[in-house]
């Protein structure tokens, strides 16, 4: 039994069947990629996993607990973190503060009224955050306003914010979208390092086959809202159904 189980998930937007009978079983400690052409329902599926959308039918279970019906912040507290297509950071705050916030969320839960303490005196949270920044080589930039970072650094910071919560599952929505090749390679290296240094499950949604084949251990191909095949990268590469989905029927 996997850490994340998706069973018979259906989602309709008016006349469009965005997801049809999606079944997924993601094993703990693996990197699982979900690929598919535009409009295949990848983002819809991801949004169903994090509580942004509610599927019409079906169930999603994370670590033995049902996830559907929970609010996004409750799902995060279960141990699912998400990296967005364009880095979502607190751009008005410093790099260090950006990492402190998830630290507090991890320690204090989704709400705690701590209006009298001083951030600077919370030594445990402070040292966790600084260690995390050190891990991603950003400690020298801790006092920089995060909105002023380069795009690559913003992505790095967002990863740090997710990882400092020690999530069991990290969801990545096209982490290299719109990046130059060099930045893409850096991101791949970063993700490899992250995977190598801790027990974490990753689900990556990606267009870029280079990224997918460098990282993923399992790949699910989604087409028109339905999972087409699920297999190892080697098998997927030459799979006729995948070619068909990407290149159209005539090419198959």
């Amino acid at each position: 039994m996997g850490i994340l189980e998706v069973k018979n998930v259906n989602k309709r937007f008016g006349g469009l069947q965005a997801l049809g009978d999606v079944n997924l079983d993601i094993q703990e400690n693996t990197v699982h990629a979900i690929i598919g052409p535009n409009g295949a329902g990848k983002s819809t599926l991801l949004n169903c996993l994090i509580g942004k959308l509610e599927p019409d039918t079906g169930s999603v279970t994370f670590d033995g607990q049902p996830v559907l019906g929970l609010k996004p912040h409750q799902i995060n507290q279960l141990g699912i973190s998400r990296v967005f297509q364009t880095p979502e950071i607190f751009s008005d705050l410093s790099v260090l503060e950006n990492v402190l916030i998830p630290c507090f969320a991890k320690r204090d839960g989704s709400f705690r009224m701590n209006a009298i303490g001083t951030v600077g005196n919370e030594t445990d949270v402070m040292s966790t955050a600084e260690k995390m920044l050190d891990d991603v080589n950003m400690l020298d930039k801790k006092d920089v306003l995060s909105g002023a970072l380069s795009r690559g650094d913003k992505r790095r910071l967002e990863m740090a914010m997710c990882l400092v919560q020690e999530p069991k599952l990290l969801l990545l929505d096209e982490p290299t979208a719109g990046m130059a090749r060099a930045d893409t390679n850096n991101t791949i290296e970063l993700l490899k390092e992250i995977k190598a240094s801790r027990d974490i499950t990753m689900v990556i949604i990606e267009h870029d086959m280079h990224v997918v084949f460098s990282l993923a251990q399992r790949i699910t191909v989604l087409a028109q809202g339905r999972p087409l095949v699920e297999d190892t990268p080697e098998k997927i590469k030459g799979h006729p159904k995948v070619k068909e989905a990407y290149l159209g029927e005539t090419a198959a």
Partner: peptide, 23 residues
């Protein structure tokens, strides 16, 4: 305070806050 930091986070990016497990 940490509470004040959270309030500044609300102003900066509510989306990120929610997906960071904060209500």
């Amino acid at each position: 305070s940490p509470f004040g930091l959270m309030l500044r986070a609300v102003k900066s990016n509510q989306q990120r806050m929610i997906y960071t497990g904060l209500n």
